[in-house]
């Protein structure tokens, strides 16, 4: 049984000082080829100074159906935000 080239996710740092950001995906036989292909597919116009590739199957993603229990509890914790605390206007630098 012949195997197809696996799918890879591509992350690119546009310039030093910025984080790597997800740019897209592509197929390649191995990591080295994935890097070379990523360079041709996603950085033809100086879009990057560094590339990460990771085989897509190694990414574990949260399920949008669980968004309620994952993210909603943060909504009623307003005391995590500075505006929750009432201070007189005379107080400066805070």
């Amino acid at each position: 049984m012949k195997k197809d080239w696996p799918l890879w996710e591509v992350f690119v740092r546009s310039k030093n000082g910025l984080e790597h950001r997800h740019f897209g995906s592509l197929h390649a036989a191995d990591a080295e080829m994935a890097l070379e292909n990523a360079r041709d597919v996603y950085t033809r116009r100086n879009e990057g100074v560094s590339i990460w590739v990771v085989e897509s199957k190694y990414i574990t993603a949260s399920n949008p159906a669980d968004n309620g229990e994952l993210f909603e509890p943060a909504k009623d914790k307003v005391y995590r935000h500075p505006t929750f605390y009432h201070l007189p206007d005379e107080v400066k630098h805070m």
């Binding site: 197809d4 799918l7 897209g24 995906s25 592509l26 197929h27 041709d40 597919v41 996603y42 033809r44």
Partner: peptide, 23 residues
């Protein structure tokens, strides 16, 4: 022409996120 190859590849991977394989 190289850009067009790239554009085809961006779009194929967008289609693949919907659960269809490249092949």
């Amino acid at each position: 022409v190289q850009d067009e190859a790239g554009h085809g590849l961006y779009l194929y991977s967008a289609a693949e996120t919907l659960g269809i394989s490249r092949n």
